[in-house]
């Protein structure tokens, strides 16, 4: 039976309007609502569905980050994750470092499928899954909107710029989730209670054996020029007239 690994990231909640800190060095995360990256929720949901269908035996949740990450791991437990690993790092961990840490874990655990979000909505990098696939020399099914698991292979439908693409990938493999793969469930109260008892192993990042120094130095973070709204027009005639005479696009 299969083991599935789902990495999850704690990020600023997608509904929060972010602010750059006063030093202009980062986005302010103090006293801001944090949540699981939405794409990772979709990844957890997909893993739980495979388990519920009797196709997987165990779901391991990993998160790399500060101590708040344990809350994110517990959220994944409440959805159906079985046990957790928390790699403790108070600073930002770059995608390549994340991929290296995950690779080490996977080699210890014999994992069959890694399901992870296609991007984190904080740094919007869209890299880690593909990097992990490279380091393991596994196939990658990115931006997945439908999975069909049979025997030792997954048939995946992917969202691409021109439409949809279908691939077959052999296990073990990496899947990265797109928005339409599923709709994540809300955890029930009993499951939230059960989640409190599930095991999380803590490993300081220094003990992973991975060089976690930054390769991308952040020189500054700033807010983009805010586009100020214009004005309301009265009716269709006025709209056409401004587009013709003021803007000149039509």
């Amino acid at each position: 039976m299969m083991k599935i690994l789902v990495p999850v990231k704690r990020v600023i909640d997608y509904n929060v309007k972010i602010r750059v800190n006063s030093e202009g060095s980062a986005v302010e995360t103090n006293n801001v609502k944090m949540s699981m990256n939405p794409f990772d929720e979709i990844a957890v949901e997909e893993a739980v569905r495979l388990k519920e269908a009797g196709l997987a035996e165990e779901i391991i949740i990993v998160s790399i980050g500060d101590k708040g990450s344990q809350e994110t791991i517990r959220t994944a437990f409440a959805m159906g994750g079985d046990r957790g690993v928390h790699i403790v790092n108070d600073l930002n961990t770059e995608p390549l470092v994340v991929a290296k840490i995950l690779k080490n874990l996977i080699e210890k655990e014999t994992i069959d499928i890694v399901i992870m979000g296609k991007q984190a909505i904080d740094d919007d990098s869209n890299q880690t899954g593909q990097m992990l696939a490279a380091l393991l020399d596994w196939p990658q099914a990115t931006f997945a909107s439908k999975l069909e698991l049979n025997d030792n292979q997954i048939k995946v439908i992917r969202e691409i710029d021109g439409g949809l693409e279908t691939l077959n990938v052999k296990l073990p493999c990496i899947v990265t989730t797109d928005l339409r793969l599923n709709e994540p469930r809300y955890a029930s109260l009993p499951n939230i209670m059960k989640a409190k008892k599930k095991e999380i192993i803590e490993i300081p990042i220094e003990e992973t054996g991975v060089d976690f120094s930054s390769r991308l130095e952040v020189l500054k973070v700033e807010e983009p020029e805010i586009r100020s709204g214009g004005r309301k027009v009265e009716d269709v005639n006025e709209l056409i007239s401004v587009l013709k005479n003021e803007v000149g696009v039509i």
Binding site: P95, L96, S125
Partner: peptide, 23 residues
Amino acid sequence: AGTFGKNIMPRVSALNDSQQISD
């Protein structure tokens, strides 16, 4: 940074032990 580049570039970047700069 379309879906083609997003899919392939990180794989190449990791093979070269380099931290990609996206988008």
